[in-house]
Design a protein around this nucleic acid. Sequence first.
DNA 1: TTGTACGCGTTATCAA
DNA 2: TTGATAACGCGTACAA
Lengths: 328, 328
Amino acid sequence: MADIRTVAAAAGVSIATVSRVLKTPDVVTKATRDKVMAAVEATGYRPNALASGLRRAKSDNIVVVVPFIQNPFFSGVIQGIEGVAFAEGYQVLLGESQNDQARLDSYAAMLRSKTADGLILLGAALPSQVPDKTPLVMACEYFPDHRIPAIRIDNEAAAKLATEHLIGLGHKRIGKIAGPHDNQLSQDRIAGYRAALTAAGLAYDEKLVVEGDFDVESGHAAMSRLLDLPEPPTAVFSASDEMAIGALKAAREHGKRVPDDLSLIGFDGIRYGDFCDPPLTTVVQPNVEIGAAAARLMIGILKGGDIPAEDIVLPASLLVRQSTGPAK
Amino acid sequence: MADIRTVAAAAGVSIATVSRVLKTPDVVTKATRDKVMAAVEATGYRPNALASGLRRAKSDNIVVVVPFIQNPFFSGVIQGIEGVAFAEGYQVLLGESQNDQARLDSYAAMLRSKTADGLILLGAALPSQVPDKTPLVMACEYFPDHRIPAIRIDNEAAAKLATEHLIGLGHKRIGKIAGPHDNQLSQDRIAGYRAALTAAGLAYDEKLVVEGDFDVESGHAAMSRLLDLPEPPTAVFSASDEMAIGALKAAREHGKRVPDDLSLIGFDGIRYGDFCDPPLTTVVQPNVEIGAAAARLMIGILKGGDIPAEDIVLPASLLVRQSTGPAK
DNA sequence: TTGTACGCGTTATCAA
DNA sequence: TTGATAACGCGTACAA
């Protein structure tokens, strides 16, 4: 309602002074500052963000593009981003890509139209056009050959950890439900799985590695195939909790008791893993912290900080619940 | 990069014409239109949303405030909102209130600063200040005595449906895990539960109604109390799936088999209900559609449509899975 | 149908 | 320390 002129008139100062009181209070006398603040209170004045943004060439918006909003793992990342953005005076503009390039591009275009200042990507896809100097940060996913800063865990080490847990329980035939083969995280997790096997003197058997797409249904299908093998595994490492949930269902359908007949470990640490029967042992990614770190990095870049040469790697941890047990 | 002047120069027209080609193509000759569009393509010009917004006094942003981003039921609502907003050329600005009034107020203040044009509320709390004519829509929750348009289901009827399902299975002692007593939805669901009992000639027993707060842990505690009763219920209706998930755990701990010893029905229809053991019978709220309808309503209001006098009530449905069975 | 020119509400520059 | 004023980029009334 009230614009800056009203406030200036009410306080008996120029509009420039009002602006200064709000943006750089230090350069203003306490006396005039108080006068102006009183007028601001009285009128309920709020600077017009559009005008301010136009002048400063900044929107203070950050676009966050997520493949699927309903994915609980991503929800945590988004929560982390929102927390930092809110504290730092930025707004989160949420977009769902649905793995659709046009949608992703459309959200990325918001940078060109000044609708937003920066872009945080939660999926593995990149916009068609990424001009140099685009403020872009990836959360969770990354591309080894692009120079895009990413916040993530060490997926290979985390997968190694999971596999070692199974090996430590005495398992020798350990299956793997992998993510899509063209996904870097999937590859890293397979590498970690393989490394752990090799270190333990266990053979890597391709037949024990089945590909899924990170979703529940694919986990169900993958576990079915593993259990239909002539020599099924006694333990399975899934590259996502979602797939592990599907796998649990498949195990039940095959009459396998978890963990008595079959151990299962997931990946991600989504809340619902705790409510499965049995509760799911898993590798916990600090997803909220990943989001927070991504937001901090983005805001740093927007404030003129430079882009780190190395990814920021956060620690993942093993959460042992009841879906894993000793081999018989 | 390229601003409107560059495009105008490249096309050999005035900046006004460029603007017209983009906003009101009909009033421009096809010849000049083509000329301008070619220049737009060539320069990669995108109108500055800040400048446009300032001039039009619109940001085309809609703030969506949700109590907790990680709640999967809300995620669906947000997805519905995003879908419609995207299609209609609006942006979704996501905020988490964390049931904190200051946070909610802060997001609501974005309307005054023109950061956003409208506000969609997913929780039951209202901003401290809601000036008349504020474009405000509620999704799921509502206040009977305020004149705030809401998109929701008929909670009483839905709760009646759930309770009738249990009655139809022969249950006589039906417990209820309710939501917070100061919440309208909780009250409606209790009313529906009570109506069903009464219609079936069953007594309403206060001892069988235990209050939770919609979250897992409270459902666990509530079910424990119900099962510790001298005469525990043979069936329980939970006012949320989250509480039902906690209740399932409590039932297991009490050595009750579901549904053989105890039937359990939830409310909301979150995805994870299908992965419980046993899969959860529940009342499905069309959460994505609720979000979509809320966005449509909001956009209609922003475009000058008037506020409907009545809430928009969407149909809920019973989804029978395996957590409910015949009374013995 | 097209161009000129003003104003949207700020912030930043420059002078005082 | 404060004030006058230009400029941010666009949309639109008005004139041509």
